[in-house]
Every structure is written in C-alpha cells, then in structure tokens.
C-alpha cells in the first residue's frame, strides 16, 4: 500500500497534475519569503563587526551555494532512481534541474567573487570553497553538454544518469582535494562565511532566504518537469485531450 505513492510518482500524468496544483503557491510563497529575507538582511540585520556591510552579501551567497550543492544531490538521487526503477520521470527532473543548478552555482560564484573584493582586496581568490564551486559549475555544464549532444532517447536518459552518478561520487573527492590544495598554497586567512557565532538577528533572515530559495527552486523544477512531460508525452491521448480543452480557455 505504501508504495502506491512511489509508483504514482513514476507516472508522468499523475505528476503533471500534482505539480500543476502546487507550483503557483510555492512560487508566491517563495517570492514573499525572498522579499522579506532580502529587505530584512539589507536593512534591519546588524552590521558585521569585522566585515562591515559587505557581510550582507551572505544573504544571497549562502542560499545559492547551498542550493547549488543540494541541486546536484537531487539530480543524483533522480539518476539513481531512474537507473534502478527505470522511471521516465527521473530524467525529466534532471533535465529541469541541471540548468537551474548551473545558474545557482554561477550566482554563488559571482557573489563570492564580488564579496572577495572588499574582503580580500581582489575580485578572485583561489579560495577552497570558490574553487570547488567552480568545479561544480563545470560538472553542471558537462551534464548539459552531454544532454545536448544526444538526441532524445533512452540512451540520453541513461548516459545522463551515469554521468551524474560519476560526478556525485567525485564531488567529495574533489572537495577534499581542493581543500588540501588550498591549505598547501595559502595559509587560510579567513573564509567568507565562517562565523564564530551568528546572533539571531543575522541568521534568521538568512534562514528565511534559504527556505525561500528552496521553495523557488522546487516551484521551478515542478514547472520544468511539467514542460518536459508535455513535450515527451505529446502523442499520448491525455495530453491531446488536455490541450484541446485548455486551448479554448487560456493559451
């Protein structure tokens, strides 16, 4: 009985409905949270005693960095599910998530680099976290490049899944090696986000931003998967019916 949910999840039609019911409120809630978090972080949160106001970049840097990493984990979970249970929808998740992950990774890198200017005095420092982030960006770009090189087929799904899994096994190794390399080449001064103990006035808005970003991401993935479903199930009768009725009302 418990597993009916799981099998339903494999059904694109079921997911199309469920995602359709939830993406809108998720998006609205995320926009509200992101606005609250941004204003709170920029206006009301206190200044950092060491970094001054430049510390406020944290409210953008940390959520995007967390999301960039957990997005890859989500893709890896989807890849494993796709390979083991042959779920078609798993690949659609990867298809929807990869560009988002790349975008968030880029944003985390960008904010990190800009934050580095007032903190370290240069736009780019070969800091362990930033470098690992850069490698992560290339992993995302690799997944996207592989997908675009193969035409839509069973093979593309499996190739992507294998590549994502290879990547996820490598991520901890890469992280460890980059951290090791960093201690070798430059004695750790102080990392951007490492703080002894953040007072609640500082971390509560950060939490709001993180939750908001997660909801934002979820809503985007839902919409992306819905689009993928429409595309791939285009010849199915339920899609025909759906579009025939929808065509008269909205689009």
């Amino acid at each position: 009985m418990k597993w009916t949910f799981f099998h339903k999840l494999g059904s694109p039609r079921w997911f199309y409905d469920i995602a359709g019911r939830h993406y809108a409120w998720l998006m609205m809630l995320s926009v509200v949270l992101l606005c609250i978090g941004t204003i709170w972080g920029l206006v009301f949160a206190p200044e950092d005693y060491q970094q001054g106001n430049s510390f406020r970049i944290i409210y953008l840097h940390v959520p995007t960095a967390i999301l960039a990493q957990s997005c890859y984990m989500m893709m890896a979970t989807a890849a494993l599910t796709g390979l083991v249970w042959k779920m078609k929808i798993a690949d659609m998740f990867i298809a929807a998530a990869a560009p988002l992950g790349a975008a968030f990774t880029f944003l985390a890198l960008f904010t990190g680099a800009v934050w580095g200017k007032p903190t370290w005095g240069t736009w780019w420092v070969w800091d362990a976290r930033l470098t690992a982030m850069l490698v992560l960006l290339f992993l995302y770009l690799g997944v996207m490049a592989l997908r675009s090189a193969i035409e839509y087929s069973d093979m593309r799904e499996k190739s992507t899944a294998i590549l994502v899994l290879v990547g996820v096994i490598n991520i901890p190794i890469i992280k460890y090696s980059v951290e090791w390399w960093n201690t070798l080449h430059q004695p750790a001064t102080f990392t951007l986000t490492e703080k002894p103990a953040m007072p609640p006035e500082m971390w509560v808005p950060l939490l709001v931003m993180v939750i908001g970003s997660y909801l934002f991401f979820t809503s985007l993935v839902f919409q992306g998967v819905r689009n993928e479903i429409l595309q791939r199930e285009a010849r199915k009768s339920w899609v025909k019916k759906l579009l025939a009725t929808e065509g008269s009302t909205s689009d």
Binding site: F138, L141, N170, I173, S177, V178
Partner: peptide
C-alpha cells in the same frame, strides 16, 4: 574533455 577534465582535478 569537457566531461572528464573536472573529474581529474584530484
């Protein structure tokens, strides 16, 4: 190269 070079970093 695009797929593999990032993995060879360690």
């Amino acid at each position: 190269s695009l797929l593999i070079l990032p993995l060879t970093i360690p």
